[in-house]
Structures are given as C-alpha cells and as structure tokens.
Amino acid sequence: MPNLRCLAIDDEQHALDILIDYTAKIPSLELIAATTNAIEAFQLIQKSKIDLIFLDIHMPELTGIQFLKLLGSQTKVILCTAYPQYALEGYELDIVDYLLKPFRFDRFLKAVQKAQTLIEAEHNDPKPDTTPDTTALLDDYIFVKTETKGKLLKVNLGAIRYIEGLGNYVSIFTDDKRIVTLLTIKELEERLPKPYFLRVHKSYIVATAKIQGIDGNQILVSEGHIPLGDTYRELFFATLQEKIVSSKK
C-alpha cells in the first residue's frame, strides 16, 4: 500500500512543528502540507488527494468541528486538541482518534496505526462511492413535516433553489413552489449534501447549481438575490474555486 498523504492543520506554529517532527519519523506518512490556515487547507483538499488529516479544533477562520462537518467522510481525521469536551462530537463525526495536547510520540503513532488499519481495510474491500453526483442528486429526496399533523411532504433535492431560515421554521424554495416546514436551518444544513448545498448566510442555504451569478456580497438566483454573509464568504469561494475562470495575469 502506498504512503498515506497527510495534511496538518493547527493555528499555532509550535503545534504544527510537533506534527511535522512526528510525521517525519513515520516512513509510511507523506506530509503534503502543514498550515495554520483552515480555509487554505480546505482549498488544498478540494484539489489534492489527502488520506489523513491531523486537525486542531480551536481555529479562528473555521473550527475543527465545522471543518469536519464540511469535509464529510472523504478523508480520515485525527483530532489534535487541548480541549477534551469535544471528543464525543468528534467521534459522532467519525474521526479516527482524539489526541489531547500535549501528546507523546507513542500515542501519536498508535493513532496513525489505527488510521492505517482503517484505510487499508477500505482499500482491500472498497465500499461503493456514495458521494452524490449531479445525476444522483436529481433522484435524491427528503421528507419534511407540513402544518397538517402526521403529513409529510416529499422534496426532491434537485428541485431546491435555496432555503431561508425563519427561526424554528424554514422556507424551501423549489423550481415550482415554496414549502414551509417546522425545522431549523442548522438541522436542514446537516442533512443536505455538500458541496451541492452551501450555507451562505445565517439565514440562507443555496443550491450551488442554481446560482446564476455573484455580485459582491449578493448571490443571484432566479427570484432575485440572497445575501452572502462575511462569515461564510471565504469558504463559499473556496468551494467554488474550480468553477471560477479568471485571467492568470
């Protein structure tokens, strides 16, 4: 099996230096990059194959937990943090291991061996690719509650244009109708596949395929425009980077 391509992300340089030193001691690891910038790391993952990520939790642009939720299950992750209270949430997001700083090399090695075992098992017995493509998205759907007790309404994901949060309710705007359901925008965000649906504002999620243009801090859709919040701006453009054509001059 080839060496594991790794990425280290921590906003403190001394913590990165430790990870750089530890990975260099393990011949089966190839450290592709070590960065203090989570947005930069996310862009790299979009462009390069990464097998294993060493990830801090407390980072300014994007927390480790937020990073995990955006990443999905495409790459194995070992959390490296000084905060034990996030362990449960980390394991719920399918991390490989949880290293509490300061950790020794032998504990780091044990976590790496666990990741290698998992990756090798998947390599020898690959699972079907469950990442949704644009064709599969047209056939995927969810059911949401309506105002009528006990009644559920089917919503085809391929028909969703954008979603607006209204407190404990959301409005789902599809190609032919508006659906209001008792659900928070965060709950719906966690159910929708990325990068086909992106949170772009505290009150909005947009279907990336339905975007007609971008004008400053406004995202153009068929009904008009929706705001692009400063908190979501960097990640939004990082996700769409490969679709943006510009001069190299």
Rank of each mutant, 00 (worst) to 15 (best):
L93A: 13
N37D: 15
I57Q: 07
L228F: 03
V206C: 08
A41D: 15
H14L: 06
K145E: 15
F143I: 10
G64H: 00
K114W: 03
K25V: 11
A238W: 00
Y98T: 12
P27G: 11
K202Y: 02
V200H: 04
L100P: 15
S203I: 11
Y91G: 13
Q116P: 10
N37H: 07
L29K: 00
P60F: 05
L153P: 01
Q113D: 10
I219D: 00
D56E: 08
K186T: 12
S246P: 15
A87L: 13
T239E: 08
K110L: 02
T130M: 10
T239H: 07
L152D: 03
I119C: 14
V155W: 00
A115H: 15
A24P: 12
Y162F: 03
Y232A: 13
F105W: 14
L70N: 11
T146S: 10
L31M: 14
Q116E: 04
I65C: 15
A34I: 06
A209Q: 04
Y169H: 07
I226Q: 05
A33Y: 00
K194F: 03
K151G: 09
A238L: 04
I185D: 06
A41L: 06
S222G: 14
L62R: 05
S48Y: 05
A111T: 07
N217E: 12
D11T: 12
T36K: 02
Y86C: 14
L79C: 14
A87T: 13
L79I: 13
T174R: 00
I45F: 04
K210S: 02
P193D: 01
A121E: 09
D215E: 05
T181H: 02
L198K: 01
A159E: 05
L55K: 06
L44P: 11
V77G: 11
E122W: 09
S247E: 02
L29I: 11
S246A: 13
R104M: 13
P102L: 08
I172L: 00
F237S: 04
T184D: 06
T81L: 03
Q113F: 06
D215L: 08
I119Y: 03
